[in-house]
């Protein structure tokens, strides 16, 4: 009797081992995990073509296309504040400076490695282009430059457009354009995030 009970315990332990669930790799998909279920092997599904998620319809022509009545606009869909400019500078340095350079001259590192050189933002043609144009180029791409719609969200694209405008002004600014009470800051070392 005791020996058969012992046998039962040993046997059930053996079966328990078969019930082990691997908690290190739970039966769910992590972001971008490969899938054996879907034909294209993607666990993270792409949006079905020509569908719009509820509440995500991009009706605002000014905000989403940089246009008013079908024409590229020279106005911003949001108030341009110091925060927006700081954000624009940061995003410009991340996404655009590799090619356009930090000052927008078109001599970024990737260009030095052989990418086609973009025109300088300080050319007459681009200085007079409406801000909507800079939003549009980022959204749809232009010639050899691919679009940044997937990498840069809409609000950031506008912030970058605002910053490019500031860059353009900065190249032709004189000391007279700086309010007298802030002129002393010109001689101070550059703030950390501008380096």
């Amino acid at each position: 009797m005791p020996s058969s009970r012992l046998l039962l315990i040993v046997a059930s332990c053996a079966f328990l081992a078969a019930c082990r669930q691997d908690m290190h790799d739970a039966p769910r998909y992590e972001p971008l995990e490969a899938s054996t279920f879907f034909a294209d092997g993607r666990g993270s599904r792409t949006l079905v073509a020509n569908t719009v998620a509820r509440g995500m319809l991009r009706e605002d022509e000014h905000l989403y296309q940089g246009k008013v009545d079908g024409q590229l606009t020279d106005t911003f869909p949001m108030p341009v504040t110091t925060e927006v400019m700081a954000r624009g500078r940061e995003r410009f340095n991340v996404f655009c400076a590799p090619c356009h350079g930090r000052t927008g001259q078109g001599n970024g590192m990737v260009v030095q490695r052989g990418f086609r050189a973009p025109p300088s933002f300080h050319d007459e043609r681009l200085r007079t282009a409406p801000v909507g144009y800079f939003y549009d180029v980022q959204t749809n791409g232009f010639g050899a430059m691919s679009d940044y719609a997937a990498q840069v969200p809409v609000a950031d694209r506008w912030a970058i457009a605002a910053y490019i405008r500031a860059l353009q002004f900065s190249q032709r600014a004189t000391v007279g354009d700086v309010p007298p009470e802030r002129r002393a800051e010109l001689d101070a070392p550059a703030p950390q995030e501008a380096r």
């Binding site: 996404f95 590799p98 590192m109 691919s146 997937a150 990498q151």
Partner: peptide, 24 residues
């Protein structure tokens, strides 16, 4: 080449997942 992490790992500041860049 001095490319910033965020150029490729775009969601690292906003989500739990840092993101691996798509082929595009």
């Amino acid at each position: 080449d001095g490319i910033d992490c965020r150029y490729c790992h775009t969601s690292v500041e906003t989500s739990s997942f840092a993101g691996i860049p798509p082929t595009k």
